[in-house]
Design a protein around this nucleic acid. Sequence first.
DNA 1: CACGATCGTTATGCAGCATCACAAGTAACC
DNA 2: GGTTACTTGTGATGCTGCATAACGATCGTG
Lengths: 147, 147
Amino acid sequence: MPARTPDVDIGALTGLIGYMLRRAQIAVFQDVFRAFAEVGIRPAQFSVLTVIAHNPGRTQSQVAAALGIKRTNFVALIDSLERRGLAERRPAPSDRRSHALHLTEAGRMTVRRLNRMVEKLEAGMIRRIGRHRRAVLLDLLARLSEP
Amino acid sequence: MPARTPDVDIGALTGLIGYMLRRAQIAVFQDVFRAFAEVGIRPAQFSVLTVIAHNPGRTQSQVAAALGIKRTNFVALIDSLERRGLAERRPAPSDRRSHALHLTEAGRMTVRRLNRMVEKLEAGMIRRIGRHRRAVLLDLLARLSEP
DNA sequence: CACGATCGTTATGCAGCATCACAAGTAACC
DNA sequence: GGTTACTTGTGATGCTGCATAACGATCGTG
């Protein structure tokens, strides 16, 4: 029986959007991370695969910008996906500087598999906070993301 | 006039709690970061100062645990606050291994100043999404942070 | 053609977060 | 009371995320 020290008061932090956003994001990402670990994919890689799947043929710069990633750091990301045979760089038809991004067949399969995982995770969210409140949350988060 | 390429579709990502949480967190943190830059304080440092202010005399391990920071990485954090004369380590009365954390007078003044900034930022949030919806958001975020 | 801008890339640095190892101190136990 | 196991703060170290600088190849425009 430990000598019960009263809990540390976290102060007004629980009333701050920024702090609570961070905590929630970390908690949710941990779940995603665990689920994706089975496939060996990180959240950032998943987002890239998704965007390529929806926009085949776009250049690295375009995809990177859409995700808010610097094209500098995007290089290693694509490298890893290409090395694993999930995506590939093809010569862009109109610009010899650019690389057009495409998924391989394995990449498309992986995306489908990841999407099934994501669906389950989102279903868990709905169970936790309710379908309606989840929709409200998404709406509020979208507003905070905008300028 | 650039040759209007249609925008890149971000796919189903806008419907994912995890992705939207991340985006919102980055956007909000950027605002906080800019505001705090004037004082030369980072969000993590602010959270530490706040917890110490509310719990003077607690040990490094206790404060670190309350914030979800490994005590290993907490060392440099306290170092910086102590070097700037905002907080200090005092010998703990009951345990000679521990350091009891306290704010200096300058630290208390800085916290007050930061709190005024935070209030303004939160007021901006309320203006953006409404007082009630902000409360709803905080509630939902708290639920997602829990186990 | 010449010039400025863009694309992908490399190199590099800093901050966040994790693990391992350790010395000093504490607590439990027989 | 002395051995043993644990805790506290610290240092060293590595990986990842994200930023900037510089560069060659290529493009678009005057």
